[in-house]
Amino acid sequence: MSINISNISKSYKKVKALQNISFKVETGELFGLIGPDGAGKTTLFRILTTLLIANKGTAKVAGFDVVSDYKNIRNSVGYMPGKFSLYQDLTIEENLEFFATIFGTTVEENYDLIKDIYMQIEPFKTRRAGKLSGGMKQKLALCCALIHKPKVLFLDEPTTGVDPVSRKEFWEMLKRLQQKNITILVSTPYMDEAALCDRIALIQNGKILEIDTPEAIVKHNPNQIYNVSADNMYKLINSLKTYKHNHSVYPFGEFVHYTDRRTDFNPKALKVYLESQNLSNIHINKTVATIEDTFMELAK
């Protein structure tokens, strides 16, 4: 068992950031914490990395208690905060060397662990970290968090503000690291990234909505989802929201995802209604539920 959280609660003055959180992460697992901004992801990360003390509950990381054994945890985990937290006035090389030194190791010693990632930014190794692009910054931050070969890796929103190509690459790297038996706890507000984790926890307002594999979570969604499109998106959403049988309506890319309350729902009836609302070019098709749909359903 790599991470074991039981009944963790944390409040800031009046705000309840976390309420009774419990879950376990197995060794070598890629575990995703999925939730919108302000859900409590960062607070949970900070408790697990010994930066904050919970008001209630206990947690163990790599077998050590986060409060009494905090020194051991600081020796054996890698942490990449949500905000870019490297020295902007130091070059790529200097940052990496600094983090290797303070963890009592050298870049050469664990080079094989970061090789795949570092090779991509190595051509710029004399460039200062502050002058790197978003994707390169994240790669460097990951290298720095990995350089001491941590047992558990905490990545707080590592892909926020990173372009889609770099995001994809980043997740491929995480998959490779997982094979080296490093436990990874990663948080993200992007639902599409959730599918890449072994297991995910959906979190909102400091509460866990559900924990399971991404496939199982999607299967739990009882509703049939329809992609609805028309030429006036704004009007379409408003019309659907005033439709008396609707169960949920929310925009999803170029479509509106719609679920109906009735068990014998007939799309044709909806089309007739929408046409009566002066909408044209209407398409209604069945679609498979995604994690985002499930999240929206659970978060209702």
Binding site: V77, K83, Q88
Partner: peptide, 13 residues
């Protein structure tokens, strides 16, 4: 301010 203190704290220093 730059958040690097967070990393320094989560280190054996």
């Amino acid at each position: 301010e730059l958040g690097t203190m967070e990393i320094l704290l989560v280190s054996p220093l």
